[in-house]
Design a protein around this nucleic acid. Structure first.
Lengths: 238, 238
DNA sequence: ACCTGAACACCGTTCAAGT
DNA sequence: ACCTGAACACCGTTCAAGT
């Protein structure tokens, strides 16, 4: 075996030449970028700055991340992973209490990363960590008696409450709510989401196409408006 | 007295030396930037690119816009001006129909400028063009019998539906819904908003501070959840 | 006053070269 | 294989100089 300056039999984390520096990895790069964004804002996340914080050169990062856009996408995914973890831990006796606590838990995560909602909204393709969040939500709604169509509308209506952005409400092209089937065995890992997506796609009664964002927008809008009207009536009656 | 917006007697647009080129102005700079963003995305909006489209040099822009950030803020304000114009034209017989049509009109504007919701959300200070939109909304709600507190909650709940973003829902520090009093004679131009802001600020029954974003978030959330529950019951009953 | 050329201090990224 | 120095093509912005 080649003579190494650190032939330590139980090599801790690094087997590289440099003794002081820990080996670079995608996780360390992402973690450093998150720390920078938290401390100095998303604008401070620069390839050169991330590299400096990791005590390496900017070009070294390209061995673990294909581009800066990919790094930003990884940041968005990392935050959604935290959201998924926070919401997965929530338990409640009723479906609405469960959803309510999960939205508040997601909000807590976003408040710790104020740059996250904007970054998540800017992603052109859905970060994979969002699917478990939706899967759990659809599962809860289905158990509570929601049919697939109503669960689908609920996901759209609750999207901005869960993720802090409402991008999908303002999109014109649909198919937002369907995870890539080839990605990771959707049918196995995301059974509720897969069933709902298939059910909604086959819906052709005219009210809903694949993802009619105009219809989803109006549904959420009517939810809010009718709720406000009930508050108005309750107050004027008292 | 109606002071005409164009008191200029005859001189066409340009009195400068260059004959072919029209004189630069803040309006032309902003318009060029909007056109670039519409055509090639917000990332294409570059001082050098805007200047090239106006057939001048990048540094000339700084005579009409103090910085690129200021230019982007002007872009956000321009889109909200279009929203204000679109919503101001809406008439309806009931308050909820009026609000509903205004939200849809705002959405139409945003769909024509897909970069706008994100840019508006990124603004750290509220673009002034948003105040007329809120003023009209509060006026409509007040006429319909909303008290100031409920109108205030309604504005928060409808914010993302009107503007395509939900930034305020995820903010931790309040006072979002109070226009700068010194800016433009709030009491005169924004009477409903001024009254509501004053009323809500004085509220101290514990339920609401100046702008308790956590409380606003929960209010909107409960609006959506209870609305979904009514849909669930209606469908299971049928 | 309004506009401009050159220059400065940054970016993301490529590439050939190191180990 | 992983890392790096130098270099390229861009940024936003300053400044002294033009008209």
């Amino acid at each position: 075996m080649p003579s190494s300056p650190r032939p330590s039999p139980p090599p801790p984390p690094t087997s590289s030449a440099a003794p002081g520096r820990e080996a670079l990895s995608r996780e360390r790069v992402v973690a450093a970028a998150v720390a920078i964004a938290d401390a100095d804002g998303l604008g401070a996340v620069t390839m050169r700055r991330v590299a400096a914080d990791l005590h390496c050169e900017a070009m070294s990062l390209y061995h673990h991340v294909p581009s800066k856009d990919a790094l930003l996408a990884a940041l968005a995914d990392e935050v959604l992973r935290q959201v998924a973890q926070a919401t997965a831990a929530v338990t409640a006796s009723s479906w609405d209490d469960a959803v309510r606590r999960r939205c508040l838990a997601a909000r807590d995560v976003m408040l710790r990363h104020p740059w996250a909602p904007g970054l998540v909204a800017a992603q052109t393709t859905s970060p994979p960590s969002v699917w478990p969040v939706y899967e759990q939500l659809v599962g809860t709604l289905t158990e509570a008696g929601f049919d697939d169509d109503l669960a689908h509308r609920a996901i759209h209506a609750l999207g901005s409450m869960l993720l802090g952005f409402s991008r999908e409400l303002f999109e014109s092209d649909g198919d937002t709510l369907a995870p890539d089937p080839g990605e990771t065995a959707v049918g196995e890992n995301l059974p509720n989401l897969a069933r709902m997506a298939a059910s909604v796609v086959h819906e052709t009664d005219g009210a809903l196409s694949v993802c009619d964002t105009r219809a989803e927008f109006e549904f959420t809008l009517d939810l809010v408006l009718s709720g406000l009207d009930r508050h108005r009536l309750a107050r004027s009656g008292a």
